Amino acid sequence: MATLDDVAAPKAKRKLTGYWLILPGALWLAVFFVIPFYSLISTSLFDPKGSVLTGYDMTWHFSNYVDAIDQYKGQIWRSLWYAGVATALCLVIGYVLAYAIAFKAGRWKNLMLVLVIAPFFTSFLLRTLSWKLILADDGFVVDALQTVHLLGDDGRLLATPFAVIAGLTYNFLPFMVLPLYASLEKIDIRLIEASSDLYASPLRGFLKVTLPLSMPGVVAGTLLTFIPAAGDYVNAQLLGSPNTRMVGNTIQSLFTTQGDYAAAGALSVTLMIIIVGAVLMYVRTAGTEDLV
């Protein structure tokens, strides 16, 4: 007859197996997230009077955060604004594209999905540089807009907020399309047909059936787009001007050019806190029960 210990032994073994399976991921997070994050927090609290040459002392200078926000609040606000506009544009464009792929593409569905992810086959830097050529002052886009008098003779697109937002929208559009497509693909087409049978107009059927059922994709896509866009600096560096600098450009300059590690660390942590807070409020408002 099996004893109580004989029954408990397999359960304990299975429990230990679960911990062993988690261990590699936990070690990965510890080495590549927890330790660098601790280092960043420490850097943000260095004595601002230090330098790369003389070294920095840990003096718990929390005033670094106040100084960073006060000095670079323009770049912080600009980054959030650019990222928000780019995310909204990606949502509008991406939803139309994902809807077409999910419901209208037919046998061309796989090809269209490949075309969506095709930009990932080339460097992020090269894709951004291509926009610099497209929006150049002597490019065909500026010439066409000047021909139809949408731009003045001395008007330009490059080195403007338009160019930066256009670059962000293009580069992060696939991050919006793919979650939206995955969400729309799971919708039972019979539900949409049922709304039509119940005399709902196409617009009302979309608002009452399709959009609510695709909200997990909307939430996931907006997060995947907004978070990296807010911290991006390549688009502002290549397509913008000093007047369109984002917080990522400032952090990069403080770390690599000015050697002001304390200010760079404080600004990095400040941006992280702002984004995490905004994401938590957004997810709480949008709801997360359907995201699992």
Rank of each mutant, 00 (worst) to 15 (best):
L157I: 10
L151N: 02
Y38A: 15
P242D: 06
F255R: 01
P161M: 06
A83M: 09
Y19C: 09
A264M: 06
L224P: 04
L111A: 15
L91I: 01
P228G: 09
L129S: 06
A166F: 13
G106S: 10
S123L: 08
A229N: 06
T122E: 03
D232E: 15
I41R: 00
I41C: 14
E185N: 13
I189R: 14
W28L: 15
L157P: 03
M1V: 12
Q252R: 07
A68E: 07
I274Y: 04
A68P: 05
W81S: 07
M281H: 00
D67L: 03
P242N: 10
V96L: 12
T3V: 08
N171E: 04
A286S: 11
V116F: 02
L239W: 07
A12E: 06
L53G: 00
L157F: 04
F226G: 02
N171S: 12
L29E: 01
N64P: 05
Q252E: 13
D154L: 09
A86F: 07
V7Q: 13
N249S: 10
R245V: 01
C90G: 07
P216V: 05
L207F: 14
D137K: 05
A8M: 14
A83D: 08
G217D: 01
A263M: 15
S183V: 07
A200L: 11
S183N: 05
W28D: 04
V276S: 09
K104V: 02
S214M: 08
A8E: 05
A200N: 10
C90T: 09
I76G: 01
W60P: 00
A163C: 11
D138E: 10
L53S: 10
T17M: 10
N235E: 14
V141H: 05
P10A: 08
D70F: 08
L198T: 00
